[in-house]
Write a protein that binds this DNA or RNA. Structure first.
Lengths: 339, 339
DNA sequence: TTGAAAGCGCTAACAG
DNA sequence: CTGTTAGCGCTTTCAA
């Protein structure tokens, strides 16, 4: 590849002029034709600035890393698209990492920025990283923003409006006439799970419905865990007629469990899921979901990170736009008539 | 972060010694205690070599990019894991890009390596990039390996054993007693699709079954396309009693179509899918699939790329290990009795 | 056994 | 309006 000095030589100028022309330095005044010669030389030699040279000089890599737990969830695509889009708009490159590698004692994060490979991180924690471990890990490092989760001891996060989302899901069941509504939620240690449960509780409260501890399960979001949760919910008496599953992938597992038990959906049991993704259209029955602005979380997260990197104090933001949207499909219906 | 010269100063040696100690230069002979002082200093200052400095000096970034079309397919996770694992084993970093951005005229690829951000690529083409466009794009660039696809004019690829996989899927239906077997395949311009169709044809041939053009569809792998294909297959007369769908995500769509049509699976129609993924366990009925070594393709691809980068001539490799595996679930059964 | 020094490609302060 | 120059952090040749 061509280097700056080759451009300069070809254009008959010094490297510094070439550099400034190519970077569009605003406070540079040149004769139009010098400028043109440089531009032409760059085009002729098909010049692209060497990344390492620039990074070394500027002490910035213009790269960010997105660290996420599970790349096998289709949900992840939205977040990634948003982040990629926003990063590219600012001429940043995005690296993907897996957060199951990020354990309490690991220095993966520190190493990546220590090496200068990336300027900062978007970190979506995995559920088995405790608040304490997380805080130790990220300390008050302004080069990190937490995605979808927050932790008390630390600023710099962007999350969904989980209470609004879970509330909308619950209200949907309420509006169909359900009075016995269960929740298949995340693990209790997760702030995300707690917010979603709060939304659920809020909707029940406003509908004057009793919230029964026997109808809530907190095993986690995986299809397997949610399936187990659903099975145990079905063993309660009386059992719920509708359930909100706090994650689509879990809802898919829950549907499987119901099928195994021979329970008709939505005839005997309604299921509404938090989050929407393409698979939800193809389950049986197709899942009624609440679509959350996950893409926008990605966008906002890189914007937050970039502004932290340029010195602004870390903020905790919650993305409310677009608002949670109920995508009505076929897994929900009025409850069966009381015998 | 600490720099080499800080280490050197702290250890009371020159930067050159520090560098060589830290890099484990084999032809360096030092007094044990000099070595120890350097190591200790590095540990005390928590040293990590600056990435840009090294990249600039060595003119290599130690980073690779994986460019794929659809990040929303759970399948992708396997490929990514394999590639990541293999890359990290060689101390390379992996970048993810989306190949829908890589259009015929685009210079995204050239720019990424032109800038020196990455040393090379794994490229999984999107179906709508023609052979010709692809060849123009990648020319004979040794910094690229094609993943899951190949193109006649070019060496340097790693693919699955698609004919074996599709054949296994088809044989499964044959062994259940099906004689009227359809195929929902990829678009005709795709070499991948052609190989899978070949495997299908081969199995039919060996079973002395007639291959009917009316029973094959070539619309593509998306759930929507496969659903459309399935619908039109069901309009044939006589219609097939079993169908192999050349991609899981397509199979999920195909199941949806069958449900819309009120056709019982596997009672009236058996469905077997190429590729396995977690969602396949949770469809209704759970999908019988052929699991392909996708993870290993990821591993092999970075190995191939790395060896191309170090000068070996590009090879075309097909991953056969582990062999395609039939994962029997509930979407396949013997054909209905002939009336 | 160790050190000095050059130079990778780039930007920016400063000088003309 | 344009050029000279220092230096980012690193590896490596060469000399001591």
């Amino acid at each position: 590849m061509a280097t700056l000095s080759q451009i300069a030589r070809l254009a008959g100028v010094s490297v510094s002029v070439a550099s400034r022309v190519l970077n569009g330095d605003p406070k540079l005044r040149t004769r139009p034709d010098t400028r043109d010669r440089v531009l032409k030389a760059a085009k002729d030699l098909n010049y692209t600035a060497n990344y390492a040279g620039r990074a070394l000089r500027l002490a910035r890599s213009k790269a960010l890393a997105l660290i996420i737990p599970a790349v096998s969830s289709p949900l992840f695509a939205d977040l990634l698209s948003g982040a990629t889009e926003a990063a590219e708009a600012q001429e940043y490159t995005l690296l993907i990492g897996r957060s199951d590698r990020i354990t309490a004692g690991s220095d993966t994060l520190r190493r990546l920025v220590g090496e200068g490979r990336v300027d900062g991180f978007l970190l979506q924690r995995s559920d088995d990283l405790s608040d304490q471990a997380l805080e130790n890990l990220v300390a008050n490092d302004a080069r990190i923003v937490l995605v979808t989760s927050r932790t008390p001891g630390r600023r710099g996060s962007v999350i969904l409006d989980d209470v609004a989302g879970a509330r909308l899901a619950t209200e949907h069941l309420v509006s169909l006439g359900h009075t016995r509504i269960g929740l298949i939620g995340g693990v209790p240690s997760s702030d995300i799970a707690r917010r979603r449960e709060q939304g659920y509780a809020l909707a029940l409260h406003e509908a004057n419905l009793r919230r029964r501890e026997a109808w809530v399960r907190r095993l986690g979001y995986s299809p397997e865990m949610a399936a187990a949760a659903m099975e145990s919910l079905m063993a309660t008496d009386p059992r719920p007629t509708g359930v909100v599953v706090a994650n689509v992938n879990g809802a898919i597992g829950a549907l499987t469990a119901l099928r195994r038990l021979g329970i008709d959906v939505p005839g005997e049991m309604s299921v509404v899921a938090y989050h929407d993704e393409w698979v939800a259209e193809h389950t049986w029955p197709p899942l009624t979901t609440v679509k959350m602005p996950y893409y926008q979380v990605g966008v906002q997260a890189v914007q937050s990170l970039l502004s932290q990197l340029s010195g602004s104090p870390p903020q905790d933001v919650v993305v409310r736009d677009p608002a949670p949207l109920l995508v009505q499909r076929m897994s929900t219906a009025p409850p069966p008539p009381r015998p």
